[in-house]
Amino acid sequence: MNVLETRSITRIYKEAAGEIRAVDGISLTFQKGEFAAIVGPSGSGKTTLLNLMGGLDRPDTGSILVDAVDICGLNARQLVDFRLYNIGFVFQAYNLIPVLTAEENVEFIMQLQKRPRAERRQRTHEVLAAVGLADRMKSRPAKLSGGQQQRVAVARALASKPKFVLADEPTANLDSKSAENLLEIMEKLNREESITFIFSTHDPRVVARARRVITLVDGKVIRDETA
């Protein structure tokens, strides 16, 4: 069954110079357990597409189905809750609350979900261990390296038990070793726990690890290859 499906979605920005079709009639389907990279030159529409799929933005035309539910029909308030319970996010930077420790950052998302305390504690340990940060739970983001911060972000995204995780250039701010390491962890989570990852990237080494590569140019999918 498709965990995510877009049906010819379009997102148009109206600028003084004319309209920009940032996403131009894209139809894609993702199955549970996919590990997909969205690639393409700068300005090709990767971020716009991920935002649409994550319910952070609305398409001008077309529809987006998550587990067969059309999220375009949800109002703003429903959409926030939808994101909270169904989608994990990893951004390029500023993923964490600086005043909270790694542990508290991960736990926070589950508090928003109103999960019981015992479950939160257990899950926090579990996901932080999964990203290899069991020993840094009590550290605040400022005390962690960029790579470690992104791993906490991945842990946070997993903690809420989402249907899939969207990551917009998660490695863009990392050195190549940390980037490699982050990808390894994501890969392992995908393989062992069949977490669905959809991420955008510029980095050819990251692309090389993806099992499916979707290439965008000017808001259109020009290639969609599965290895």
Partner: peptide, 16 residues
């Protein structure tokens, strides 16, 4: 600004 944007993106609603 960015932190608040992140919090709202991941699911913190307006009321919160």
């Amino acid at each position: 600004t960015r932190e608040l944007g992140m919090l709202r993106a991941v699911g913190m609603n307006n009321k919160r």
